[in-house]
Structure formats: structure tokens, C-alpha cells
Amino acid sequence: MTATSREVRFSLSSLEVAGKVWGEPGGLPVIGLHGWLDNAATFDHIAPSLEGIHLVALDLPGHGLSDHLPMAGYSLWQQASTVLQVAEDLGWERFALLGHSMGAIISGILTGSLPERIIGAAMIDGLMPFTSEADDAPKQMARFFKSSLAVGNKRKPVYDSVEKAISARVRGGTTSITSDAASCLVERGLMPDHGGWTWRTDPQLMLPSPLRFTNRHADSFIESITSPTMLVLANQGVMHKHPQVLDRIERFKNIQLHKMDGGHHLHLEAEAPAVAGLLNDFYASLSTTDSSAS
């Protein structure tokens, strides 16, 4: 695949969604889904090395160059619905997925829910959402209500250079990331403001979820996956902070598990060539086993 990507926009019923495209029609159709607070540039370092696929990497609503949603609009299932709307716009009845972190969780929801639509899914350091049990729901909803009342009073930071915004992302992220990797995400995630630069990201994305899946809900989606599915698990990634999640992942025998040294954004860092190699093997196997891919 060429190193050059092209921009694309999808005019959906209620919003516009932006994205980046690598490859040409005729390759395996793949929709790419980034992580929380990231954008389509998350695939900049691996997409040029992927072979035989037509990759459409999205800026999910609220991220990158895509529109924002109304109040209380963000949920895993809402984002998954947007992915399906884009697939409809592309005319893709069946397609594969490439997801990182939150994008991997969304991929799991779609693959478990709609096996007839999903040819296969490759996930990078993400599979299970944060969960809580039914008895915790009132407290979780209260956290959302209180935070949502305050979100309009918070001002976004303004940086006098892109370089300072990159440094802020490196220092302030919830997971470690190199400056080179952060620069891909930051440059697509900024907009001019008062002579400087601020984040395009919707502040609502920082709100706590009003409702979470229970453990049983989360397990059920993964257990329902019948399409070929691969997970690249970073040995120094985000899920290693949650040993109980790792234990659950090991129990899913329907997931091809590949463990690799590297951090949460290993597909954007030094490990990118190795990740691309795993992805090429996976997508090649889908191309040979699914005659309906177009």
C-alpha cells in the first residue's frame, strides 16, 4: 500500500464523519477505529505497510475532524452505530475491522452482534470495556449528571505552538506515548484558537459514562464472536494495569492472541513493523477464506 493517504468525509443523517483512506477499491474492505481521544492518524505508521486491503480509518464522532454529538451522545453502542452508517454509505455489506483501544472494544461489540456483517476483526491492545455491576448504576449515573453540569464551564487550554501541544499530550496522557507517536495524533486533533492552538476534541468525551456494561454483558459480546478475530496485546499496555481483565481475555478461546513487547500505542511506535506483519498475515487469511469480500 502506498504511504500516501487521502481524506474522506461521510455526510450521515445527523453529522459529518471524517476519515483517512489507504489503498484502492478491490482490496479487502476494512474500517479502522482509533482509541479514546485519538483520531484516524493512529494508523499512519502501519497503514502504508498493509497489503491487499482498502482501509478507511475514521475520526469517530467528537474526535479529529468529525462533528460533535449533542449532549449525552457518546456511548460505545452509539459509536458502533456510526461505523455501520459509514459502511452503508460505502456500500459495504460485509467488511473487516481494525481497532485500537476503544476502537477495539467497539470492534468486539460489532463482531459479536453482527457476525453476518463482519468478515473478521483485528484488535490492538483493547477488547473489554470498563464494567460495573447493576447495583452501582445509580452512583455511576450521578457522577455523569454532576460532571455534565460542569462541562460547559471548563475552558480548553490554548498552546502557542503545536510543539507545546505535543509535549502536553506526552506528559498528560493516561498512557505513555513517544513524542513522535503523539505528533501524529496531535496535529490532526488541533484547531486554531486566539492566536494559538487548542483541542478539536469534544469536552463531553471526558465525562464519565452514564451507564456501563456489567461483566456478564461484556463477556457475552466476546463469547458471541464467530468471525476470525485477532488481538495484539501490548505487554506494557493499558490492560496490564488490570490483571482481572487479562485473566478474562485468556479464557476466550475464539480470539487469536498475540502478545508483544511495547506500550499501548505500539502500532505507532518502534513495534509498528511487527504489528503490521501480524495484520498482513491476518487479513491475507480473511481474503482467501471469504469469497464475498469486495
Score class of each variant (00 low, 15 high):
Leu33Ala: 05
Ile124Pro: 00
Ile166Phe: 04
Ala47Asp: 12
Ala87Asn: 10
Ser179Gln: 14
Arg117Phe: 02
Gly23Val: 11
Tyr159Gln: 12
Met260Ala: 10
Ile53Ala: 05
Arg143His: 11
Ala276Gln: 09
Ser147Gly: 13
Glu271Gln: 15
Gly196Val: 06
Leu279Tyr: 08
His267Glu: 10
Val162Phe: 02
Gly73Ala: 03
Ser5Ala: 12
Met71Ser: 14
Pro61Trp: 02
Thr82Lys: 02
Lys156Asn: 11
Phe95Thr: 11
Ser179Arg: 14
Val245Ala: 12
Phe213Trp: 10
Leu55Asp: 09
Met128Gly: 00
Val170Pro: 13
Arg9Gly: 10
Pro48Arg: 04
Pro208Tyr: 01
Pro61Tyr: 04
Phe252Tyr: 15
Asp160Gly: 08
Ala137His: 09
Gly32Ser: 07
His267Ala: 11
Val232Phe: 03
Ile249Leu: 01
Met230Arg: 14
Leu69Phe: 03
Gly189Lys: 11
Arg9Gln: 15
Met141Tyr: 12
Pro243Ser: 08
Ile106Glu: 03
Phe221Gly: 00
Gly64Met: 12
His267Lys: 06
Lys20Tyr: 00
Ser49Pro: 00
Leu246Met: 12
Leu12Tyr: 12
Tyr283Asp: 03
Thr82Met: 04
Met128Thr: 09
Gly27Val: 07
Met128Trp: 04
Ala96Thr: 08
Arg169Val: 05
Gly196Lys: 06
Lys164Arg: 13
Tyr283Ser: 08
Ala122Leu: 08
Glu116Trp: 02
Val30Ser: 10
Asp89Thr: 14
Leu127Asn: 01
Leu97Gly: 06
Val56Leu: 09
Gly126Ala: 08
Leu257Ala: 05
His258Gln: 09
Leu55Ile: 07
Glu163Thr: 10
His100Thr: 12
Val56Ser: 07
Leu60Ser: 13
Leu28Thr: 14
Pro192Ile: 02
Gln79Met: 14
Asp219Met: 05
Val56Gly: 09
Glu271Gly: 09
Gly32Lys: 06
His100Trp: 06
Glu223Asn: 14
Tyr283Lys: 10
Pro25Ala: 11
Trp36Val: 04
Asp281His: 11
Ala234Asn: 09
Leu127Ser: 00
Leu114Glu: 08
Ser220Thr: 07
Ala218Asn: 06
His217Glu: 15
Thr175Asn: 12
Val232Ala: 10
Lys20Val: 01
Leu65Pro: 03
Leu246Val: 10
Val238Leu: 14
Ile249Glu: 03
Leu69Asp: 02
Glu51Lys: 15
Gly237His: 04
Ile222His: 02
His100Tyr: 05
Asp44Ser: 15
Ser220Lys: 11
Leu90His: 11
Phe221Thr: 00
Lys164Val: 00
